[in-house]
Write a protein that binds this DNA or RNA. Structure first.
Length: 278
DNA sequence: ATGCCAACCCGGGGTTGA
């Protein structure tokens, strides 16, 4: 079974690239983040033409997550249990579209694989209310992780997506540049560690360019070509999942090109592709 | 400190991203 996770930064803008990528890489399951459209506007039809069904949780301009599967999709969960809401100043707090769960690949002889597609809040700046929200969101994710751990003792289970946390200093291209920034603070890394402490392993992809398994490169300043990236998209897996992995790699090809190139701009994130002996 | 780029809204400029 081939499972991928990819922050696509708008499914509408990226549709051509995503469809071509599905045909090339032939993943069985894809966790998508930042679809940036409503649930109703998600392009189900062209995905279905390639054999995929989908669970979609959209939210208009921002956020939005989905899981595509061509090996079945069951036991769908929308949002984290008790997911904290957020509001900018003067707005009504809402539970944002940042988490969907599902069981894929279940058959008569196999319980299937339990997956979550996650888009952790950015945090903006360490002093910003959005950062407090990010930490609360990660705390609630740890609650989910603990309950999922218990519910899937022997079956493969993993949390995948854009965690917006660089677990270690080697997960950013230049630690000095991140002084005072989000993604590298002790508070965020403590929440990452809490997820690991539920029993999950951080499945690090094979190194790419520059020996770095980065998954994100800013659009600006030629960051991708200089490999000035970050490892913030993660696959956190239980032993049954981790033990079945035969390969895991970052598909840097999907990050290539520009707004001027054929097919239009890439996402600023590259997919992680995981192959499993399941 | 800011721009660097790309996406969203909507129709020029603000907001978000990480």
């Amino acid at each position: 079974m081939r499972i991928a996770t990819w922050n696509i930064n708008s499914v509408t803008t990226r549709l051509g690239r995503v469809l071509a990528w599905l045909e090339t890489r032939e993943p069985d399951v894809v966790c998508l983040q930042e679809i940036k459209t409503t649930t109703d506007a998600f392009p189900l039809m062209p995905m279905a033409a390639l054999g995929y069904e989908a669970v979609v949780l959209g939210q208009g301009r921002w956020n939005g997550v989905a899981i595509l599967s061509r090996v079945g999709l069951a036991d769908v969960s929308l949002n984290l249990p008790d997911q904290p809401p957020y509001a900018n100043e003067g707005e009504t707090p809402i539970v944002e579209a940042r988490a969907v769960g599902a069981t894929v690949g279940a058959t008569g002889s196999h319980p299937g694989v339990r997956l979550w597609s996650l888009y952790v809040p950015n945090g903006r700046e360490p002093q910003h209310p959005h950062f407090t929200y990010k930490l609360a969101w990660l705390d609630q994710l740890a609650v989910l992780a603990a309950s999922e751990w218990n519910a899937h003792q022997s079956a493969p289970y993993a949390l995948l997506g854009d965690f917006n946390v660089a677990p270690t200093d080697s997960d950013v291209w230049d630690r000095a540049r991140f002084e005072g920034s989000t993604h590298v603070t002790p508070e965020e890394r403590a929440r990452y560690q809490a997820l690991i402490d539920t029993g999950l392993s951080d499945l690090i992809a094979r190194p790419g360019k520059g020996d770095n398994p980065f998954t994100f490169w800013d659009y600006r300043g030629g960051a991708f070509h200089k490999d000035e990236g970050m490892r913030i998209d993660l696959v956190l897996a239980n032993p049954a999942f981790a033990g079945a992995v035969t390969d895991i790699w970052v598909d840097r090809e999907a990050r290539k090109g520009s707004a001027q190139s054929e097919g239009g701009a890439p996402s600023d994130h590259a997919p992680i592709i995981v192959d499993l002996d399941i």
